[in-house]
Amino acid sequence: MTFGLQPEAGPVRMPAPVGDLSAHAGPPPALLFDHVSVRFGAYTAVNDASLHVGDGEFVSIVGPTGCGKSTLLNVAAGLLEPSEGDICVYGRSLEGINADAGYLFQADALMPWRTALSNVITGLEYAGTERKAAERLGNEWLARVGLSGHGERFPHEMSGGMRKRVALAQTLIRDPKIVLMDEPFSALDVQTRVLMENELLQLWTTYRKSVLFITHDLEEAISLSDRVIILSAGPSTHPIAEFRIDLPRPRDVAEIRMTPRFVELYHQIWDAMKEEVLKAYERNQRKLAD
């Protein structure tokens, strides 16, 4: 992918011509939200959201807290069916669980009664992989996420960062084409977080998954992504702007934050989302007052 070439790369105001994409020649995008709405009873969580994630692209979705970011991700995972609109995976309308996708949850999703190794190979076990081969691959992945020798530990015997590594290995060992991430590092301390972000980028560079990454942390979004999509405050969340991040790769997430281009992008994006953040804040204040 070649960005960083156009000097004027910056905000692309929504509504982007997403509809054109399906008609576009070339490979279909890994994920395509086509006018997706999600309603829970009378409450509209997501309203007419259209966006896409290209093959091998790292896209972040940023929005104020409680704006329905996770809802979008659950739709992409096939855990939640949209009330309206369609979700396409590599050009095919999704039905049931998205078998091409791995999902890294915000909360701990490891089974507390299984060891790290056993957790990592759960997906292989489901697929009926032979036990020995699965364990060999599992140990390889544990090493890849920096946990060799910790395979026999139970989740409660590990730190939050270690548990996230196990979860990452558990997701990636299945070699999914798409990885969905829901604020995976939000519970970690700042240092561990930077470490994990760098490791994630390294893994992404090696395996070139299509990533849809959800966060409320704008710095994290910019330093990791090819593209950042801003959501409006909920309810009736929808994308309001998207920005191409033309920072050179490979990146170091700690260092890149000091570069002038990063700061420039940060200001641009923050300007675009400030209003929505304030809206969400006011709504929360009102809720507290009631």
């Binding site: 995972a77 949850f105 089974m111 009664w113 997906g123 076990e125 489901y126 697929a127 558990q170």
Partner: peptide, 23 residues
């Protein structure tokens, strides 16, 4: 979350029963 995770990892109904519900 564990249930959703297992489904994403490809568990069918029987596997959900033996690896999530029963434990």
């Amino acid at each position: 979350v564990i249930l959703a995770n297992s489904r994403m990892l490809g568990a069918n109904r029987r596997q959900l029963l033996t690896t999530v519900y029963i434990p």
